[in-house]
Design a protein around this nucleic acid. Structure first.
Lengths: 340, 340
DNA sequence: GTGAAAGCGCTAACAA
DNA sequence: TTGTTAGCGCTTTCAC
């Protein structure tokens, strides 16, 4: 299996060694027919013996197809994002595609620059996960196939959109708190530009209204966008608490914020869930292992990733999508634990 | 800024539009000299007007250089790995490189297949993060530049190796437990094939010896390789506890296992840190937010990533590395929290 | 069933 | 300072 040849061998050389033309070798490799079984056997033998490996760059240039997908994501170190990317990579690998990963860092300029690079590298499609603004398809070439996950495309016509049901997640999470008896709710939120955040907030508000809890007595606690860490949530909650904003229920827009909130409450002398009930979003692996364990809204990241890839592959294969397919909402689940 | 042209324009066309030769356009774009300021101005104007974007595939084919780095990682959804990958991507992006991400899934066949693909895509270098076996450079072409992170290369001559000081991490973590008065220690471990796991275990054993604690009365609790989740750790610890293996200190080879251990102890009626002291490894963001907060060994993932990239870039630029550079150990830090 | 030849878009000799 | 030309390794007509 040792492949330590200094120079990669080309189809041309394989052709020479096999006594056939490059065209025939190409046909054999790609199983395009128009060759005899005998030829196939012989060529394959020579290929094996010489440890030939396809030069995908040349193939790409010729075919205008790179067998590579670009994945745009704000921050791969986020547990939810990385779990989606993991699924995508696995699925796409099984279909013969590689994945170029692009952390946009929520920086529009970087995103734009990456888009240029990806186009130059002839990616066959784009998977866009989350992001502050709506995704504007006009910043890429018209033929760039794109699927947006948890991020609204500006012009829904050209781009496929797929998302968890964040609105319902916010609604149900809030409902849980209310049904458990909470009367003064707080929501702790960051990245309000995010489609997903806005939807979760909308769910929260609608739940309050449904249950006749005036929004005014409740509290929106904002965390700076750049501070996605639990620490920022902890400080904000503590500040609110000290200002006399006592609440008996907190819906945290994500689990990290929830962990911070939980710690803040503890430090302030409030017990979870006795005095304050808390529910998060994303169902991080560690929700189970915090104490008390954290209730959360679970997104079906597997399905999200798989559907997104499937749709992109369909676009790549020039299939026509129905309008139902072009815009899909994936249901979420509530996972109840000790924190409520 | 709208770039919705159906067909990308080529250097040749830019040349025609500018009234110069393709060679000159190329020189201008790449700033290779041999053109007048006047020409530069004019060509750049035409490039802007026509929204020209470089075709990197063609460039790669010609230059045998793809401006792309392959990153091999067992599982990007692991918090520590994803934080390293994040850093790598940021750094490499700033140097003009893209990153193809490859989850090996700890599957040798997949790894091998990926290596073939990456070679075919002409990656300029390989960043190999962790992995069960030693990395065998003979499975890639000799000219494939490789930096291994936390994974020993089989033949240290050709490949750069960089790692955290796992041994010292294990040693110090264990020492902390001992100094806090623990006398019957347990270590909970998974993935024992991993270089990093073995080193941490070695540190544990050496610490015991140094402090005269017989290894026999201590306990190695193993978790199946495929079960990297806290749940497996919880069950194993619970099992040990029920069998009467009472310990007063646990060194968990990573934080996930530590969280599981913590939960198991709680369920068994033991208090952390009063009855059992626990320390983990990796310093996950959530160590601070568990209750009790978890002590841990912190790897300097920023430095690990940056150094690895720097070394790879040096190799790419054909710089000669000193033997000190070719093999580097990065110091770790102990972070003490409530759990001890 | 097979081969010859063109060309994807770029860069790098070499010539001028 | 600029242009001409060849060719990277592949696929794909078109001819036989």
């Amino acid at each position: 299996m040792n492949n330590n040849d200094e120079n990669k061998i080309s189809i041309k050389q394989i052709a020479k060694l096999s006594g056939v033309s490059p065209a025939t070798v190409s046909r054999v490799i790609n199983n395009n027919g128009r060759f005899s079984e005998k030829t196939r056997h012989h060529v394959m033998k020579v290929i094996k013996e010489n440890n030939y490996g396809m030069n995908y760059i040349a193939k790409s240039l010729r075919m205008k197809k790179s067998f590579t997908i670009g994945v745009l994501v704000p921050d791969i170190s986020n547990a939810f994002f990385s779990s989606i990317v993991l699924r995508m990579e696995k699925y796409l690998y099984s279909k013969g595609y590689s994945v170029i990963i692009c952390n946009t860092d929520r920086d529009e300029q970087k995103e734009l620059a990456y888009l240029r690079t990806l186009e130059g590298k002839m990616v066959d499609g784009l998977l866009v996960i989350s992001g502050d603004q709506e995704f504007d398809p006009s910043v890429v070439q018209a033929q760039t196939l794109t699927v947006c996950i948890d991020r609204k495309p500006k012009n829904a016509d050209n781009v496929v959109f797929i998302s968890s049901d964040h609105y319902r997640g916010g609604l149900l999470a809030t409902e849980v708190l209310i049904k458990k008896g909470c009367e003064k709710l707080g929501i702790i939120i960051s990245h309000e530009n995010l489609y997903s955040s806005r939807e979760r907030l909308r769910g929260f508000k609608d739940a309050l209204e449904t249950y006749g809890l005036p929004y005014s007595v409740n509290k929106v606690i904002r965390v700076e966008d750049k501070e996605t860490k639990p620490e920022a949530a902890r400080l904000q909650i503590l500040k609110s608490l000290r200002q006399g904003d006592l609440f008996d229920g907190v819906f945290a827009i994500n689990d990290r914020l929830a962990f911070g909130a939980m710690k803040a409450c503890r430090e302030f002398g409030l017990k979870v869930p006795e005095n304050v009930k808390i529910i998060g979003f994303d169902d991080d692996l560690l929700c189970t292992y915090s104490s008390p364990s954290l209730s959360s809204v679970k997104q079906d990241s597997d399905q999200l990733a798989k559907k997104a890839c499937d749709l992109l592959l369909k676009l790549i294969h020039l299939e026509v999508l129905t309008s139902n397919e072009r815009c899909q909402i994936i249901p979420i689940n509530i996972v109840l634990r000790e924190s409520v």
